[in-house]
């Protein structure tokens, strides 16, 4: 996985709460067997609306999404994360993420930065007042920054220590776990015999 220390890119204000995974990418786009090519499905239903934020310049070239609370609720589809990444997003800022979405982001290398609700509100105001303003998501210092002068936003964000460390180091989770293969062997040796198996 690619290392992530900090990223600066055009901020995209998505003034919606409860953006569920069916909104991020509808099921009919989930048929690909690769991790790429999902950008067309991103927010597919909303992209038909010319007024939708990603249909407007300069937001179309955005790479930091700023969304309302409960982002990524619903299905476990990691395709939601891939669709955001395939489109060009590197980070999503929201006051609250659904658990599975946050987990998937951490595995796939998309930063899910959880901030205070007020910070999102101020970012939305700023990004709408000055389209094209860039947002910096700094994983090293856990801060999100945007704009200059009196309306500038700078605040800390939450991300769990372990995910942050893995993203900073660009580490593959499976590799880390396989280094503990002895522990897994020992655990398996002690499993009760009544546990079911699928092959006989």
């Amino acid at each position: 996985m690619e290392k992530f220390t900090q990223h600066t890119g055009i901020g995209v204000p998505l003034r919606r709460s409860n953006v569920d995974t069916d909104q991020i990418i509808p099921a009919s786009y989930l048929k690909r067997v690769t991790r790429t090519g999902f950008e067309d499905g991103l927010f597919a239903a909303w992209r038909n609306d010319p007024g939708f934020v990603l249909n407007r310049e300069p937001y179309a070239a955005g790479s930091v999404l700023v969304a309302g609370p409960d982002f990524g609720t619903g299905s476990s589809r990691e395709h939601a994360v891939w669709a955001l990444q395939n489109y060009g997003f590197r980070a999503v800022v929201s006051p609250r993420f659904a658990d599975i979405f946050r987990g998937n982001s951490g595995k796939a290398g998309l930063v899910a930065a959880q901030v205070d609700e007020k910070v999102v509100q101020r970012l939305w105001d700023l990004l709408e007042a000055e389209p094209g303003t860039t947002v910096t998501v700094d994983l090293e210092s856990r801060t999100v920054r945007a704009g200059e002068g009196p309306d500038a936003v700078e605040d800390s964000f939450d991300i769990d220590d372990y995910t942050r460390w893995r993203l900073l180091e660009g580490l593959d989770d499976i590799g880390i776990t396989l280094s503990h293969a002895d522990d897994i062997d020992a655990f398996e040796a002690a499993r009760p015999s009544y546990k079911p198996v699928t092959l006989h």
Binding site: E78, K107, D173, I174, T177, L178, E188
Partner: peptide, 20 residues
């Protein structure tokens, strides 16, 4: 509980999952 595809790969490879 439900997991994403990266975690599916993790479980396939290790039969374990890191969980907080």
């Amino acid at each position: 509980f439900g997991i994403g595809t990266s975690e599916v790969e993790h479980v396939l490879a290790t039969q374990t999952l890191p969980q907080s």
